[in-house]
Design a protein around this nucleic acid. Sequence first.
DNA 1: GCGCTTGTTCTCGC
DNA 2: TGCGAGAACAAGCG
Length: 245
Amino acid sequence: MPEGPSIVILKDLIRELHLGKPEVLEVTGNAKNFDKDRLLHQKVEGFKSWGKHFLICFNDFTVRIHFMLFGSYLINGRKKTPVKLGLIFKKDELNFYTCKVDLLEGNVKEHYSWENDVMADEWSSSAAIKKLKEKPNALVCDVLLDQQIFSGVGNIIKNEVLYRTRIHPLNKIEDLPPAKLKALVKEARNYSFDFLKWKKDNTLSKHWEVYSKKECPLQHKIDKRELGKTHRQTYFCEKCQKTVK
DNA sequence: GCGCTTGTTCTCGC
DNA sequence: TGCGAGAACAAGCG
């Protein structure tokens, strides 16, 4: 569920409902960190996403949903696990489970910069490169997960992007030749759109080249280790992915 | 029943 | 007081 492309899928599914600007007729759920009555009888002005954040925008505030690792949602359906937030409209309802819900005051544009959302039209690769150069000592396996640089990229995308670009996860940013750095940034966005397409087709896992695999496409043995400050599982091929230094 | 995980935030100790 | 490492939290699948 949680990586950026999956949030785009949620946004697309809601678009297909043709809700327009629906009024919230009822609010359910056990989210306690804000007053749910704030939403009652308010009109949703739009559904947006920023990276892994799903945003339900109202006139002067926005509800932010973060699915973390285990979050889920149902459109016009309910399940047994307690609902965290449910919005009931005239014909349709949205239910969110096991997620973090927060209320952001004011205009949502004050809270986010879309140039670092790998899925956004506003994505700026030059801004990403600039931010990477400010972290010369950081490891590539860590920077890909930095939501202020690659908002929306998660652990699957990280691993696949590193393999596609043949970059070893333990390379430092400062050791990457400019062309490699550029390729890294380009592929972070490019693979994210492949992820979106394959996830929609239900064929995402079939296309994994290293993530959760035992062998790379060239039949080399895959290493699986917790690497970097982030300590996330990293799947990589020592033969295909080279350290520069 | 256990181990694992597409993630983030908070606490604690130095 | 600032920091980084580790804990904490969560649900469902094989």
